[in-house]
Design a protein around this nucleic acid. Structure first.
Length: 452
RNA sequence: GUGGAAUUAGCUCAGCUGGCUAGAGCACGGGGUUGUGGUCCUCGGGGUCGCGGGUUCGAGUCCCGUAUUCCACCCCA
């Protein structure tokens, strides 16, 4: 008896409808990346396990799908693309023109418990700028990130970008009750605060042995992330105690965002720290305003990573955006177009007993035409289909044509065909014309062109 | 890795406290007036009731295990 299988936990099957949605999202990422001057790259789906350990520590191993090959090499399916990218840059850094602006759309794998917005296999758009240490590179990344979201129909009403800067935050906090040694703890707490209630927060403060002064600052930080006047006041109060040059750099960066047309999206947010990863300065997160979902995208500056992988010292900044949360948000906001499947240019309907004339027309429509010396395309192949049904019921076949979304139907009918003509029907306005068989292809091409 | 809920046709679900040859709508397919649009009529394909055990004369229904999905924790690059 045959065994039936389910797909592995946390994976998806892309049937045509789902595949069309995936392509729609990937196309937006790709066109926007290109618009901003990023070049597409990719790397292997698996890498040495060590590559991820170096970057993230040994704890990462339990979150990876890893295995040994026959020569006993430890390998892991990539959980993200940045290590591969850094490795690729480290290998050829000397010969790459700078700044290096690359994007990629890799499938990635994480051996985690699946839940809303998080699967074991997903697709993550990455954009990175290497070799540009200026704030302009950070701004450009946020700009390309936002542009992609806009390309998909999202606006500042639905999504926002919160940004922070680890060094500035550290300097600000150390101007208050914190000492430098407490920063790792402070970052850890900051990263967790927003999802805890008051009791949970207090428990955490106690567990981390926070001083009353530190707790007071955490309370203000929590308040500062809230929208509206209350949040603004908490932010003001905190900033008042921070060094002048830190304050002015924050203001400077925010004005750069505004200058790039991102003023409605971006807000300084002291509570964004992005885990305890390899980020060295600027960090940001894009999220939907409703806030029920996980972050849509996140990234920041990682100036030491390429060096860590044996490459030259090269400043780097980048971000990733996963397809899972993005699709959830687009669905929630009703922003996925209805007809993402390709729609035929021509649907050929045949009522003749002889199938050959219809098949001949199909073949001609699909063929790309070249000029006499084969140097230029004079007519690209069209998307042309027909029915495989046996019925000669014109109504049924036109119904099928309509269902396919075809722009035009070419109809072979006995009486007309005897007179040497084919009927051509514009499916949108239901108008019909007749075409001499010899001119049918040309007329159809013209009609399709006019409708495009 | 831990905890909670769920799993019946491709999809959305009925199936009361165990008594069926397991149903509906949608979707899919054939046909319907020798010739024009998502309608209508009609017929049809498709289900090891997630999987494996157990209790019982009898299990879609009760019990145990397991897989998957969703939710939450851990983690989040």
């Amino acid at each position: 008896m045959a065994t039936r299988f389910q797909g592995p936990k946390g994976t998806r099957d892309f049937y045509p409808d789902a595949m069309a949605v995936r392509r729609y999202i990937e196309d937006a990422w790709r066109t926007v990346s290109t618009r901003f001057g990023f070049l597409e790259v990719d790397g292997p789906t698996f890498e040495p396990l060590e590559l991820y350990k170096i970057k993230s520590g040994d704890e990462i191993v339990s979150q990876l799908f890893h295995f040994q090959d026959r020569a006993d090499r430890a390998l892991a399916l990539r959980p993200e693309f940045t290590p591969s990218l850094a490795r690729m840059v480290a290998e050829k850094a000397g010969s790459l023109p700078r700044p290096i602006k690359w994007f990629s759309i890799p499938r990635c794998y994480r051996a985690e418990q699946p839940q809303k917005g998080r699967l074991r296999e997903f697709i993550q758009w990455n954009a990175d700028v290497l070799g540009d240490a200026t704030t302009a590179a950070d701004v450009e990344l946020v700009a390309v990130c936002v542009a992609a979201l806009e390309e998909l129909g999202l606006t500042a009403r639905e999504v926002r970008v919160g940004w922070n800067h680890r060094e500035l935050l550290t300097r600000g906090l150390c101007a208050g009750p914190f000492i430098a040694e407490r920063m790792p703890v402070a970052y850890e707490i900051l990263d967790k605060l927003h999802k805890l209630d008051a009791a949970g927060q207090n428990a955490l403060f106690e567990a981390r042995e926070c001083t009353p002064g530190e707790v007071a600052v955490f309370d203000l930080l929590t308040a500062s992330a809230k929208p509206g006047e209350q949040g603004r006041q908490a932010m003001e109060e905190l900033l008042a105690s921070w060094p002048d040059d830190v304050r002015s750099e924050i203001a400077q960066r925010q004005s750069e965002f505004a200058n790039a047309g991102l003023g409605d999206y971006c807000a300084f947010d002291m509570t964004i720290v992005r885990g305890l990863a390899y980020y060295t300065g600027f960090v940001f997160e894009a999220f939907d305003v409703g806030g029920a979902n996980r972050a849509l995208a996140g990234g920041g500056r990682y100036d030491k990573l390429v060096e860590l992988l044996g490459g030259p010292e090269i400043p780097a900044t980048g971000f990733g955006m996963g397809d899972v949360v993005l699709e959830l948000v687009l669905r929630e906001k009703n922003l996925l177009p209805k007809n993402l499947l390709p729609q035929p240019d021509v649907f050929v309907v045949n009522i003749l007993p002889d199938p050959l004339p219809a098949q001949r027309l199909l073949a001609h429509l699909r063929k790309t035409h070249w000029n006499a010396d084969h140097t230029a395309v004079t007519g690209r192949g069209l998307h042309a289909v027909t029915s495989t049904r046996a019925t000669k019921n014109v109504g049924k076949l036109l119904q099928e044509a309509a269902g396919s979304g075809a722009r035009v139907a070419a109809i072979f009918l006995p009486d007309e065909y005897a007179r040497g003509v084919v009927k051509i029907k514009n499916m949108a306005d239901r108008s019909e014309t007749e075409a001499p068989a010899a001119e049918a292809v040309a007329m159809l091409r013209q009609l399709i062109g006019a409708l495009r």
